[in-house]
Design a protein around this nucleic acid. Structure first.
Lengths: 350, 350
DNA sequence: ATGAAAGCGCTAACAT
DNA sequence: ATGTTAGCGCTTTCAT
């Protein structure tokens, strides 16, 4: 029979004051006699008292928790496909990109003693679960990372008036805040670097073109190249995965064996591209220069090390958390957007 | 002024029954007239009622949440070093290994509508935070993944009687449940494969030898090799990171240029090893066969694809969640341990 | 500056 | 089978 943990009541009795006073001391509210404060703090220390957070949330209506949701495709119009986990998680975390996101989020949350709950919204059942979670007050808001455009989740949340902030501009112009990168500028940076290096036949492996981000990187790249006198750029669509990058590069090479410069829309694909190039007897960067995107851990780990367009993921994620917090506190009522600038990191591949 | 969300009371009034009855319907408790059930469900549907989870937790004393904690070194005896995030997160997620963990955990949690809160415990302040979190009742238990042995966290939790399950046997024999891999068998698998392949001069790049897992992999490897007539095996200690694997391999090569078989204690290091070998003009696997460990995403992504010892991470993580759940429910009171068997996955590197 | 008292929304005995 | 009642542990007016 382990004894019940002490409550506010216990502390109050022990300290010879009222619950209200103890509560004030705990929440750092002014107007409490310093002497009493000491007594109370002493009792708290001695008893090892910890406030019960359910009781507190019940009255403050705050969970001090936010949902960190990774949203994917999957529209299984069906009802609740129920249980079973999801290789989706492993897939998402395979791109080290997400580690930097978590890092940025934690940096903001920790000093405010808020905490992130990890959620996946890859099916309509899972999306409903996210909405329910917030409506139950288990989280005060959501940070959403969609791997596909046309994600229905933001609109669902907006319709319920639940605070949320997206990573990347929503496809359907839902009225929600978002943080994004100037992807076109990123594409331009890559193009100019390849051009400046003297590449004459350049091509690009894009991300899924249903994603605005992938579109924009392509557009920025293409425009910059056109501005330098190359009217059309061969491209092949990939899926932001290692294997899709390799496959796309193989296709590109079949049509255009003379390529000497390649821009892959993320590092994973750039790595796949380098491998295929090598298999085709091309040296990187001597025969073909390759530029990636993101600057994820893999960019430094592979050989040659990747020259890449870096997104300041940590800052972007922390900013998302900050904006979300403003919405939660009511300090901000209208949706806003914050756009970050990418920068080129030159290593060995180009 | 947005209207308050409906409460149980509202639903009860609307349905013409008592709160208790509505509560019974929601919690699926028998002994409720089917007709009434329908009415109640109708009202819930119409009003969009969602139970407030703080209120529920207050009485059930369950948060339906577990802490997913990644614990690291850092003993800053100092007080609260306070705020600031941690590149620790990015570092941890850089090993795709963790994605599989999340996958396994979610698989178990989701059907039980429990949720994971992500926490990092890399400093003593952060460890205290984890303990406080559980004591506040914000999570019902913790799943702990330590990157270093001698982690003080398990003992702290055990001392408070807070439910937790570790990944890997604790260094200090804290009285807590854990799930682990038969690392020695893994080392043996790697050794036998290299030997069967005909390697004559084999060596190994170990993990941090302060970690029991790294020790065991080495021991299993060494014993198996000895059993086949090779009394001593050269080894170099790494740190489970890509770069440390590369560095350790370089050292090994300096002393033993004739190596023709190499076992790296994880895939990240195996990848680093392959790169260094190539730089030394050695082909993998023709000149040197390389075996990794984990079977993380990188094993399939790098070239040559890694032959590696697979840990069933998803199953292990799901098992951790199951055991934790048993502790939380009180269905299990004594600590237990579950050991999984590794298996060899043969690809191209050996 | 401090205390008394009224809930927050829910579950769980207990009574019927 | 359903309703009544008593809290769960905390914050927060409102008095004093």
């Amino acid at each position: 029979m382990t004894r019940q943990p002490p409550t506010l009541e216990d502390v109050a009795r022990e300290a010879g004051v009222s619950r209200a006073t103890v509560s004030r001391v705990i929440n750092g509210i002014r107007n409490v006699d310093p002497a009493i404060q000491d007594v109370v703090r002493g009792v708290i220390e001695r008893t090892g008292y910890t406030p019960n957070s359910a009781a507190r949330s019940l009255v403050t209506r705050r969970a001090e928790t936010i949902a960190l949701v990774v949203a994917g495709a999957g529209d299984d119009g069906s009802g609740d496909s129920g249980g079973e986990g999801t290789a989706f998680a492993a897939q998402v975390f395979a791109d080290p990109f997400f580690g930097r996101v978590v890092d940025g989020v934690i940096t903001f949350l920790r000093p405010r003693s808020m905490h992130p709950v990890l959620m996946f919204a890859e099916s309509s059942a899972a999306r409903r679960e996210v909405v329910a979670y917030l409506r139950q007050g288990r989280a005060d808001g959501a940070l959403i990372f969609s791997t596909h455009a046309e994600d229905p989740l933001p609109a669902l949340l907006a319709a319920e008036g639940l605070p949320c902030v997206l990573f990347a501009r929503p496809g359907d112009a839902a009225p929600v805040s978002y943080v994004d990168l100037a992807h076109q500028d990123g594409g331009r940076l890559a193009a100019e670097h390849l051009l400046d290096r003297g590449c004459r036949q350049i091509a690009t492996v894009t991300g899924p073109l249903s994603l605005p981000a992938a579109q924009d990187r392509l557009t920025g790249f293409r425009d910059a190249v056109a501005r330098r006198g190359h009217p059309c750029v061969p491209f092949a669509e990939g899926g932001f995965t290692h294997d899709s990058g390799a496959a796309a590069t193989a296709r590109l090479l079949r049509e255009h064996p003379g390529i000497d410069g390649l821009f892959a829309a993320n590092d994973l694909m750039a790595q796949g591209a380098c491998q295929v190039l090598r298999e085709h007897g091309k040296r990187v960067p001597q025969d073909v220069a390759v530029v990636g995107f993101d600057d994820s851990a893999t960019a430094r780990a592979c050989r040659p090390r990747l020259t890449t367009v870096r997104q300041p993921m940590e800052d972007m994620a922390a900013t998302m958390a900050r904006v979300l917090q403003e919405h939660i506190e009511g300090a901000r009522t209208e949706p806003t957007s914050v756009i970050f600038e990418p920068r080129l990191v030159v290593r060995e591949s180009a």
